[in-house]
Amino acid sequence: MMMGYSSAPIGARENSEKDVISREAQSPTATRERPQEEPATANVKMRAGDLRAFFGKAEVIKGISLPFPENKVTAIIGPSGCGKSTFIRCLNRMHEVVPGARAAGEVLLDSDDIYAMDPVRLRRRVGMVFQKPNPFPTMSIRGNVLAGLKLNGIRPDDPDGLAEKTLRQVALWDEVKDGLGRSGMSLSGGQQQRLCIARTLAMEPEVILMDEPCSALDPIATARVEELIHELQKQYTIVIVTHNMQQAARVAQYTAFFYMGELVEHDETNVIFTRPAQARTEDYITGRFG
């Protein structure tokens, strides 16, 4: 598993949608010029070791080992039903919330075994953004941002300042600053999703898990969220599940390809998309199935 060259942030991104669309028009396997970053072993923030996941008796994740380098974005791609969502939900132990579900194997956060810690504690260090935006409907925008802190009994010194900071981080501040008391549901889908991301950021996690965060959003909102991911990656380790390969190519430095509960290949994104080592990976990339 090569961890040598980490691909640089995907170019200097402009804000215009035209740029995004034209970039999308390029082949996902186009090579780009990248300056070299730090060589060899980048720090591993989170690591899954022979992780297995079960729903009842059915084994859905069949022994996956995967490192997640710090301050990088790792994308997980694969056809529907390959276990991407299940896998990512194991990383913050949301998987076991479903009745009858369990997991086995090892997942380390820095050097802590997540199965040895209290899930509540774990989820403060590892945040999650869901596929369908789920701001709490009975809370205001401000309330939503601070919800995680309130739940955990943390009283910030400057709640308004913190709300502003996170809303600025997700580029939502200008749009909502005059109506922080409005309900979270009064925003558009894309805005709601960014609100949910802000809510996660307010907890100051170390890792952010994203389960197909853009699949319920329109292309413009998607572009915004992808820019956000690009910004966030400087401070956080991000794992993103996506069924959109172009998205993986745009936002992630590393990509893992899952198939039927197994890890088929994991490498730098540009390698996966230009010279995949496995035939199945190539088949998927080129659209022969999935």
Partner: peptide, 11 residues
């Protein structure tokens, strides 16, 4: 403070 509030929440 956080640790004890945490124990409290669990309780």
């Amino acid at each position: 403070g956080i640790r004890s509030s945490y124990v409290y929440r669990r309780a």
